[in-house]
Protein backbone atom coordinates (compact mmCIF):
# COMPACT_ATOMS: atom_id res chain seq x y z
CA UNK A 1 0.00 0.00 0.00
CA UNK A 2 1.21 3.51 -0.71
CA UNK A 3 1.00 6.65 1.36
CA UNK A 4 -2.40 8.26 1.68
CA UNK A 5 -3.53 11.52 3.25
CA UNK A 6 -6.60 11.84 5.46
CA UNK A 7 -8.11 14.93 7.02
CA UNK A 8 -9.70 15.09 10.48
CA UNK A 9 -11.75 18.16 11.32
CA UNK A 10 -11.89 17.59 15.08
CA UNK A 11 -9.35 16.42 17.64
CA UNK A 12 -11.69 13.57 18.69
CA UNK A 13 -11.81 12.33 15.11
CA UNK A 14 -8.00 12.54 14.80
CA UNK A 15 -7.53 10.66 18.07
CA UNK A 16 -9.95 7.99 16.89
CA UNK A 17 -8.09 7.52 13.60
CA UNK A 18 -4.66 7.47 15.30
CA UNK A 19 -5.92 4.96 17.85
CA UNK A 20 -7.35 2.58 15.27
CA UNK A 21 -4.40 2.38 12.88
CA UNK A 22 -0.77 2.01 13.96
CA UNK A 23 0.47 3.10 10.53
CA UNK A 24 -1.13 6.52 10.76
CA UNK A 25 1.06 9.49 11.67
CA UNK A 26 -0.17 12.96 12.44
CA UNK A 27 1.15 15.84 10.37
CA UNK A 28 1.52 18.67 12.88
CA UNK A 29 4.00 21.26 11.61
CA UNK A 30 5.52 18.59 9.37
CA UNK A 31 9.18 19.58 9.82
CA UNK A 32 10.11 16.04 10.86
CA UNK A 33 7.42 13.91 9.30
CA UNK A 34 7.87 15.48 5.83
CA UNK A 35 11.57 14.76 6.07
CA UNK A 36 10.70 11.09 6.58
CA UNK A 37 8.50 11.16 3.50
CA UNK A 38 11.10 12.98 1.37
CA UNK A 39 13.78 10.49 2.37
CA UNK A 40 11.63 7.40 1.85
CA UNK A 41 11.28 6.40 5.52
CA UNK A 42 7.51 6.88 5.53
CA UNK A 43 6.07 5.67 2.24
CA UNK A 44 3.49 3.24 3.42
CA UNK A 45 0.67 4.31 5.72
CA UNK A 46 -1.56 7.30 6.38
CA UNK A 47 -0.58 10.89 6.96
CA UNK A 48 -3.27 12.57 9.02
CA UNK A 49 -3.99 16.28 8.73
CA UNK A 50 -5.91 17.99 11.53
CA UNK A 51 -7.83 21.19 10.76
CA UNK A 52 -9.49 21.77 14.17
CA UNK A 53 -8.79 25.45 15.12
CA UNK A 54 -8.70 24.45 18.82
CA UNK A 55 -5.56 22.41 18.10
CA UNK A 56 -3.61 25.66 17.54
CA UNK A 57 -5.08 27.70 20.38
CA UNK A 58 -3.01 29.41 23.08
CA UNK A 59 -4.54 30.47 26.38
CA UNK A 60 -1.91 32.31 28.39
CA UNK A 61 -3.53 35.35 30.00
CA UNK A 62 -4.18 33.70 33.40
CA UNK A 63 -2.07 31.93 35.99
CA UNK A 64 -2.47 28.59 34.19
CA UNK A 65 -1.19 28.40 30.61
CA UNK A 66 -2.63 26.08 27.98
CA UNK A 67 -0.78 25.71 24.69
CA UNK A 68 -2.56 23.80 21.92
CA UNK A 69 -0.26 21.11 20.58
CA UNK A 70 -0.59 22.65 17.12
CA UNK A 71 0.64 26.08 18.29
CA UNK A 72 3.86 26.97 16.50
CA UNK A 73 7.06 28.50 17.84
CA UNK A 74 6.14 31.68 15.91
CA UNK A 75 2.80 31.81 17.73
CA UNK A 76 4.59 31.52 21.08
CA UNK A 77 6.91 34.35 20.02
CA UNK A 78 3.95 36.53 19.05
CA UNK A 79 2.31 36.12 22.47
CA UNK A 80 3.36 38.69 25.08
CA UNK A 81 2.04 36.65 27.99
CA UNK A 82 4.59 33.99 27.08
CA UNK A 83 7.65 36.28 27.16
CA UNK A 84 9.43 33.89 29.55
CA UNK A 85 9.24 31.21 26.83
CA UNK A 86 10.50 33.44 24.00
CA UNK A 87 14.17 32.47 24.48
CA UNK A 88 13.09 28.83 24.13
CA UNK A 89 11.00 29.29 20.98
CA UNK A 90 13.68 31.53 19.44
CA UNK A 91 16.30 28.81 19.96
CA UNK A 92 14.50 26.43 17.60
CA UNK A 93 15.67 26.42 13.97
CA UNK A 94 15.50 29.55 11.77
CA UNK A 95 12.46 31.78 11.09
CA UNK A 96 10.86 29.40 8.57
CA UNK A 97 11.21 26.38 10.86
CA UNK A 98 9.69 28.40 13.73
CA UNK A 99 6.74 29.30 11.50
CA UNK A 100 6.07 25.59 10.99
CA UNK A 101 7.38 23.68 14.05
CA UNK A 102 4.73 22.94 16.67
CA UNK A 103 4.82 22.24 20.39
CA UNK A 104 3.18 18.84 19.87
CA UNK A 105 5.85 17.83 17.36
CA UNK A 106 8.60 18.99 19.71
CA UNK A 107 7.38 16.53 22.34
CA UNK A 108 8.09 13.73 19.86
CA UNK A 109 11.33 15.11 18.36
CA UNK A 110 14.23 12.74 18.92
CA UNK A 111 17.35 13.97 20.74
CA UNK A 112 19.18 16.30 20.14
CA UNK A 113 15.94 18.05 19.12
CA UNK A 114 13.20 18.70 21.64
CA UNK A 115 14.37 21.99 23.16
CA UNK A 116 10.82 23.15 23.91
CA UNK A 117 10.05 19.84 25.62
CA UNK A 118 12.99 20.53 27.96
CA UNK A 119 11.40 23.83 29.00
CA UNK A 120 8.04 22.11 29.53
CA UNK A 121 9.74 19.50 31.73
CA UNK A 122 11.19 22.24 33.96
CA UNK A 123 7.72 23.80 34.13
CA UNK A 124 6.18 20.50 35.36
CA UNK A 125 3.73 20.57 32.46
CA UNK A 126 0.80 18.22 32.06
CA UNK A 127 0.47 16.72 28.60
CA UNK A 128 -3.14 16.24 27.53
CA UNK A 129 -3.33 12.96 25.60
CA UNK A 130 -6.43 11.71 23.85
CA UNK A 131 -6.55 8.04 22.91
CA UNK A 132 -9.52 7.00 20.82
CA UNK A 133 -12.78 8.92 20.88
CA UNK A 134 -12.90 9.51 24.66
CA UNK A 135 -11.80 12.69 26.41
CA UNK A 136 -8.17 13.73 26.88
CA UNK A 137 -6.36 12.70 30.08
CA UNK A 138 -3.54 14.60 31.77
CA UNK A 139 -0.18 12.84 31.84
CA UNK A 140 2.78 14.31 33.74
CA UNK A 141 5.37 15.31 31.16
CA UNK A 142 8.10 13.17 32.69
CA UNK A 143 5.89 10.09 32.44
CA UNK A 144 4.93 11.09 28.89
CA UNK A 145 8.57 11.38 27.80
CA UNK A 146 9.43 8.02 29.39
CA UNK A 147 6.47 6.37 27.66
CA UNK A 148 7.57 7.95 24.38
CA UNK A 149 10.75 5.88 24.52
CA UNK A 150 8.53 2.80 24.68
CA UNK A 151 6.59 3.98 21.62
CA UNK A 152 3.29 4.94 23.28
CA UNK A 153 0.75 6.63 21.01
CA UNK A 154 -2.32 8.86 21.08
CA UNK A 155 -3.07 12.44 20.11
CA UNK A 156 -1.49 15.17 22.21
CA UNK A 157 -4.12 17.91 22.26
CA UNK A 158 -2.37 20.50 24.45
CA UNK A 159 0.09 21.09 27.27
CA UNK A 160 -0.77 22.90 30.49
CA UNK A 161 1.33 24.41 33.27
CA UNK A 162 1.35 27.12 35.91
CA UNK A 163 2.99 30.34 34.75
CA UNK A 164 6.14 31.11 36.78
CA UNK A 165 5.19 33.72 39.38
CA UNK A 166 8.33 35.65 38.64
CA UNK A 167 9.73 35.55 35.08
CA UNK A 168 13.30 35.63 36.47
CA UNK A 169 12.68 32.28 38.20
CA UNK A 170 12.63 30.53 34.82
CA UNK A 171 15.85 30.35 32.80
CA UNK A 172 16.78 28.55 29.61
CA UNK A 173 20.00 28.05 27.73
CA UNK A 174 20.76 26.18 24.55
CA UNK A 175 24.39 25.33 23.92
CA UNK A 176 25.22 24.91 20.24
CA UNK A 177 28.31 25.19 18.11
CA UNK A 178 26.75 27.08 15.20
CA UNK A 179 25.08 30.38 16.00
CA UNK A 180 22.42 31.58 15.75
CA UNK A 181 20.87 28.36 14.42
CA UNK A 182 22.61 25.22 15.58
CA UNK A 183 21.47 21.90 16.96
CA UNK A 184 21.85 21.39 20.71
CA UNK A 185 25.05 20.15 22.28
CA UNK A 186 22.72 20.37 25.25
CA UNK A 187 19.92 22.56 26.50
CA UNK A 188 19.08 23.41 30.10
CA UNK A 189 15.86 24.79 31.57
CA UNK A 190 15.52 25.66 35.23
CA UNK A 191 12.52 26.80 37.21
CA UNK A 192 13.56 27.99 40.66
CA UNK A 193 10.49 29.40 42.43
CA UNK A 194 11.50 31.98 44.99
CA UNK A 195 15.07 32.20 43.68
CA UNK A 196 15.42 35.64 45.30
CA UNK A 197 15.30 34.09 48.83
CA UNK A 198 15.05 30.32 49.44
CA UNK A 199 14.32 28.10 46.47
CA UNK A 200 11.26 25.87 46.83
CA UNK A 201 10.38 23.07 44.36
CA UNK A 202 13.43 23.43 42.12
CA UNK A 203 13.00 21.94 38.65
CA UNK A 204 16.03 21.45 36.40
CA UNK A 205 15.81 19.72 33.01
CA UNK A 206 18.32 18.84 30.32
CA UNK A 207 18.01 18.19 26.61
CA UNK A 208 20.52 16.02 24.73
CA UNK A 209 21.90 14.60 27.99
CA UNK A 210 19.87 11.37 27.61
CA UNK A 211 17.79 9.73 24.84
CA UNK A 212 14.87 12.02 25.86
CA UNK A 213 14.74 15.22 27.94
CA UNK A 214 15.49 14.38 31.61
CA UNK A 215 15.26 16.00 35.01
CA UNK A 216 18.48 16.62 36.89
CA UNK A 217 17.25 15.42 40.27
CA UNK A 218 20.64 15.71 41.96
CA UNK A 219 20.80 19.38 41.00
CA UNK A 220 17.24 19.95 42.19
CA UNK A 221 18.10 18.44 45.60
CA UNK A 222 21.27 20.53 45.84
CA UNK A 223 19.29 23.75 45.29
CA UNK A 224 16.17 22.95 47.31
CA UNK A 225 15.62 25.26 50.28
CA UNK A 226 18.84 27.22 49.64
CA UNK A 227 19.43 30.78 48.54
CA UNK A 228 20.91 30.82 45.02
CA UNK A 229 24.43 31.72 46.17
CA UNK A 230 27.94 30.56 45.25
CA UNK A 231 27.80 27.58 47.64
CA UNK A 232 24.49 26.35 46.21
CA UNK A 233 25.75 26.75 42.65
CA UNK A 234 28.89 24.79 43.53
CA UNK A 235 26.79 21.99 45.01
CA UNK A 236 24.54 22.01 41.92
CA UNK A 237 27.57 21.69 39.62
CA UNK A 238 28.89 18.78 41.66
CA UNK A 239 25.56 16.98 41.18
CA UNK A 240 25.13 18.03 37.52
CA UNK A 241 25.64 14.62 35.94
CA UNK A 242 23.43 12.54 38.20
CA UNK A 243 20.91 10.58 36.11
CA UNK A 244 22.30 11.65 32.73
CA UNK A 245 23.01 9.26 29.84
CA UNK A 246 24.39 11.50 27.08
CA UNK A 247 24.83 10.02 23.62
CA UNK A 248 27.51 10.52 20.99
CA UNK A 249 26.20 12.01 17.77
CA UNK A 250 27.39 14.25 14.94
CA UNK A 251 27.17 17.31 17.23
CA UNK A 252 29.21 16.12 20.23
CA UNK A 253 30.54 13.03 21.98
CA UNK A 254 29.06 11.77 25.24
CA UNK A 255 32.39 12.64 26.89
CA UNK A 256 32.22 16.26 25.69
CA UNK A 257 28.62 16.61 26.85
CA UNK A 258 29.60 15.37 30.32
CA UNK A 259 32.54 17.79 30.44
CA UNK A 260 30.57 20.90 29.53
CA UNK A 261 27.27 20.22 31.32
CA UNK A 262 28.40 21.38 34.80
CA UNK A 263 30.07 24.46 33.32
CA UNK A 264 26.96 25.60 31.44
CA UNK A 265 24.69 24.75 34.35
CA UNK A 266 26.88 26.85 36.66
CA UNK A 267 26.82 29.80 34.27
CA UNK A 268 23.05 29.63 33.82
CA UNK A 269 22.48 29.53 37.59
CA UNK A 270 24.91 32.40 38.16
CA UNK A 271 23.15 34.44 35.46
CA UNK A 272 26.38 34.71 33.45
CA UNK A 273 26.72 34.87 29.66
CA UNK A 274 28.30 32.04 27.75
Amino acid sequence: MALQVRVATTMAEAAGILGSDQRTRLLSGGTLVMRDINEGRFLDGTLLRLTDPAYHQINASGARVELGAGATMAMVLANRDLAFLHPVARAIGGPAIRQMATIGGNLFAATPYGDFAVALLALDAQVMVQSGYGSARAVAIEEFLNARERGASGLVTSVQFAKPQNAADFRFRKVSRVKPKGVSVMSIAVHLPNSASRIGQARVAYGAMAPAPVRARGVERALEGKPLDAAAIQAAKAAALEGTRPVTDAIASDWYRREVAPVHLGRLLAGEGR
Partner: peptide, 13 residues
Protein backbone atom coordinates in the same frame (compact mmCIF):
# COMPACT_ATOMS: atom_id res chain seq x y z
CA UNK B 1 3.06 36.19 3.89
CA UNK B 2 5.12 34.04 6.28
CA UNK B 3 8.34 32.17 5.44
CA UNK B 4 8.00 28.41 4.99
CA UNK B 5 10.30 25.69 3.70
CA UNK B 6 8.51 24.35 0.66
CA UNK B 7 10.37 21.02 0.83
CA UNK B 8 8.76 20.35 4.24
CA UNK B 9 5.28 21.63 3.31
CA UNK B 10 2.66 19.12 2.23
CA UNK B 11 1.35 20.30 -1.15
CA UNK B 12 -2.32 19.48 -0.50
CA UNK B 13 -2.19 21.56 2.67
Amino acid sequence: GEPHLSCLTLAVA
